[in-house]
Write a protein that binds this DNA or RNA. Structure first.
Lengths: 155, 155
DNA sequence: ATCAGTGCAAACTTTTTGCACCGCA
DNA sequence: TGCGGTGCAAAAAGTTTGCACTGAT
């Protein structure tokens, strides 16, 4: 619980290659660079963030599509303006965000395992009752960090 | 539980007008129609959904921007392909989203009251342990709708 | 040698903007 | 009657696609 440990235990590249092989795709150099870039990022990236680095736009988009199909990256639900991508949960670990509505800072957090499990159970049945197969969830906690709470008092 | 009851107790139009006035904007007929459309919808709408109805694209986009600034509507987190909009929480009540990661469709859902309350309790303490004062939360369920699950099988 | 993957450029989709006009405070 | 809001059309921004080429198996 608390701040996410963000422990990367598995070999991301080996796993990426395995996932791609499973759908008859190669782990080409461009795709490896793309994964490398996402791995180094501390937040989800939009396509052009990656393109600036090293690959042409069309390759970025095409490879992101393939990597998403393979389950290596996932499209992150953003505010709808751009599509953003991050490494898939299986490669990155499940976590939540604690967002300060005052200053906008975002912290990665984990929930206690029992709460997380109960949450997942509850949501699985809720989703099923609407005809959906649950694949995950996103929970953002909105709050005020101690700094912003303190400055509230000064107003 | 299940699909949101959409209980609207306050006068949405009066509140919208008040919020717009607060930032020196008028509650024009076009904006009223736009709010009306969102009010009737059971799920967030993308700009073209609204445009089809009655307003030109440019007016829809411009008015959505103004209404968002006023706090009347909010941009919903989608799968990043299109921006979707709904009435702000203060006008619409608290609810969650069931998002299809395949096609991007979003459904409004309520959680059973006891689960919602437990969730809030759990998160309040989690936030506090990171030095935050919780002010709210966003919970999105990610899944595949029946249509997308079916088309998976055809691949 | 074959075919998956690449890079360029052009097409396409979604969103924003310039400008002339309309109508309410 | 001045200025906020509108509608059209054109531009900009973001994403996808066609095609010829390259390189790994």
């Amino acid at each position: 619980m608390g701040v996410a440990a963000n422990s990367v235990r598995i070999d991301v590249h080996a796993e990426a290659e395995r996932l791609l092989r499973a759908i008859d795709q190669r782990y080409s150099d461009g795709r490896r660079r793309l994964v490398e870039t996402l791995l180094a990022a501390t937040h989800p990236l939009v396509a052009t963030d990656i393109a600036d680095d090293d690959l042409p736009q069309s390759s970025v988009y095409r490879n992101l599509t393939v990597l998403e199909q393979a389950g290596v990256v996932s499209k992150v639900l953003t505010n709808g303006e751009r599509a953003a991508f991050e490494l898939a949960e299986r490669l990155k670990g499940h976590h939540h965000h604690l967002v300060c509505v005052g200053c906008g800072q975002v912290l990665d957090i984990d929930l206690p395992a029992d709460i997380e499990r109960r949450l997942t159970d509850d949501m699985t049945s809720t989703a099923r009752s609407a005809g959906f197969v649950l694949v995950g969830h996103r929970l953002d906690l909105l709050g005020r960090c101690s700094t912003c709470v303190t400055s509230d008092r000064d107003d």
